[in-house]
Design a protein around this nucleic acid. Structure first.
Lengths: 344, 344
DNA sequence: CTGAAAGCGCTTACAG
DNA sequence: CTGAAAGCGCTTACAG
């Protein structure tokens, strides 16, 4: 038995392939009678539409715009590469991607770009979201004009778009869990020194969420460990360096450092200049962090797969634009946990 | 500027689209001169072939056979579902999958199936590999007949096929790392009780590898912890139950249990009947293990994403058969680590 | 070794 | 609301 085609369905339903196509793609202007006949034929012949990418006819190119911070951390560099490869990876050469650099921390630039998008030229936008007042509205405006929007890595709460990234509260909790256990083991009654926290900026939702999850678990399960106030280093290595120096000096018995953002070179440098060896957890397996992990300078790294995120962004934008379903299990971004022994 | 087509390339090269197609798909019978012209035209026009799934012409259906153990553990049930969904997930309806159940531990059955495959009807096979003498040869015979082979979850060392699964030595090391740290924390000089190991069968490579990696890290980094001899439970819950009971009784100070295989219900049951609470690590996030993890009865779970494995198997078989490249970064199966706080 | 022609399954204007 | 026809980009026999 060979695969059923649109023609088969049309014949079975006593209709033309054009009408069948209209039903199948919800293009309207079809009688409910025809709709039913088609549905019956489809199930009778167990017809399955060829994948979207296959309809070769005058198919419009989908233009997607990626708004990416201009200041390139190692993580963002990896991300850009991933974005470039995504269309090939999702096996769709009708997708065209443009990367638009956004000045650091410039909400207005994001807003301006969003408002400046022509819905005729651009079908979807993916952005690193700053959770600032105007951005959310700008996203809503873009959506109202029919432009698909997904947020990457850090979400804008309340905005009704797809978020492509890890659950950062979970990530923070995992970090807390590992931190507590790596410090205490099964001896949770023994005294342990305090734990320091270095994060990026409270204006990014992912940072807030990670800190929340981390503190929650630490205070709930490891109340014997004092948690120091988070230090906002804005992902700037030099600032993080000073923070770490200070932490180590003020707390000779420091038992852990949790870094929730980028700019880790500063932390690693400060650690290399001391004999203290607090349990150190970081985010994102960049080349530098990876190196530190393999040398044992970092104890664990929580990460998110940038290739996966880029692919998911493209697939999600495409599916949403075409009104097709997405495969949840394929788009879920998991928290990757790396120890010295499973560095890829 | 619009996308270049085969016709464009042909025109630019002064050849016909048929010849261009031959070059592009390495179908031979082409002069090196033509080859060069096409190459030049391709790069000049930056032509990119439409994804494989798009060539709609008389395209042969690819038949892939999955040899799966008949005895269904929770993990294997999840796996079967994943296999069923894989063709849709990889967006290719020209792939047809048949699942063939293999009696437990029956090498001859695997060999018989492999030898019985007709290369005219079946283009590729994916199998759970038992590392037994005859199996490797049977795989080689199948390959010689032009049938693509991939091994799933557990590899056959030395066989020249693609392996789709995690690096099990790494997984064992990760388990060792976590076990040691979860027991000792930063107090690696304090006395700790012994650790028990329960595995499946030494005839499966994944088990061997996990045990190797685990022992290696435990003895190297946590020499203060005694490692008990691995107990081969063949993934049978009842046997594992007895093993666990015995472990707990013989070692009142047991500080950890590492389970490298299926049949975990027996272990969990035995643990529920005692007050001892050794650090417990298991493999595969099945519904049951997931439940135990969320209740804190298990401390960490190492897992592999069955959906990902199924998709990768299909993509790899297809790519190998068609002589197309695979995207390494997309096919790499990572070790998923789950704690109470990142259960999906 | 090469090309003209027909066809793949689906979709899009265009008439009606 | 519906269908006949032409076309999408690529591939496959078939001649040469």
């Amino acid at each position: 038995m060979t695969k059923a085609t649109v023609e088969d369905v049309a014949r079975h339903a006593g209709l033309s392939s054009a009408t069948v196509g209209r039903v199948l793609n919800g293009r309207g202007n079809v009688s409910s009678q025809a709709r039913e006949k088609v549905a019956a034929a489809v199930s009778a012949l167990s017809y399955r539409q060829l994948p979207s990418s296959i309809s070769v006819s005058t198919k419009p190119i989908l233009n997607f715009l990626f708004l990416i911070p201009e200041r390139k951390t190692e993580f963002l560099k990896m991300f850009e590469t991933a974005i470039d490869l995504a269309p090939v990876a999702v096996d769709d050469c009708n997708v065209k991607i443009t990367i638009c650099p956004i000045p650091f921390d410039a909400d207005e630039a994001v807003i301006r770009e969003l408002d400046g998008i022509s819905e005729d030229l651009t079908q979807g936008v993916a952005l690193f979201a700053i959770d600032a007042p105007g951005v959310r509205q700008a996203v809503e405006r873009a959506k109202r004009r029919g432009i698909q929007v997904v947020t990457l890595v850090s979400d804008i709460p309340g905005v009704t778009s797809s978020f492509i990234g890890i659950d950062n509260v979970s990530a923070g909790r995992v970090a807390g869990n590992l931190m507590g256990r790596f410090i205490c083991g099964s001896f949770s009654d023994l005294p342990a020194g305090p734990v320091g926290i270095i994060c990026g900026t409270a204006r990014l939702r992912d940072q807030i969420d990670r800190m929340y999850g981390f503190s929650q678990i630490m205070s709930r399960r490891f109340s014997n460990i004092e948690l120091l106030a988070p230090l906002e280093g804005n992902s700037i290595p030099e600032v993080n360096y000073e923070f770490t120096k200070e932490l180590l000096k003020t707390h000779p018995n420091l038992s852990g450092i949790y870094s929730g953002s980028a700019g880790n070179s500063g932390i690693l440098e400060a650690l290399s200049e001391t004999d203290q060896s607090p349990i150190t957890l970081m985010h994102e397996l960049t080349p530098m962090v990876r190196d530190a992990l393999s040398k044992g300078e970092v104890d664990a790294v929580l990460s998110q797969n940038v290739d996966h995120i880029a692919r998911s962004a493209v697939r999600t934008l495409r599916a949403n634009y075409l009104g097709r379903p997405i495969l949840e299990s394929q788009e879920k971004i998991e928290i990757d946990i790396f120890l010295t022994d499973n560095i890829p």
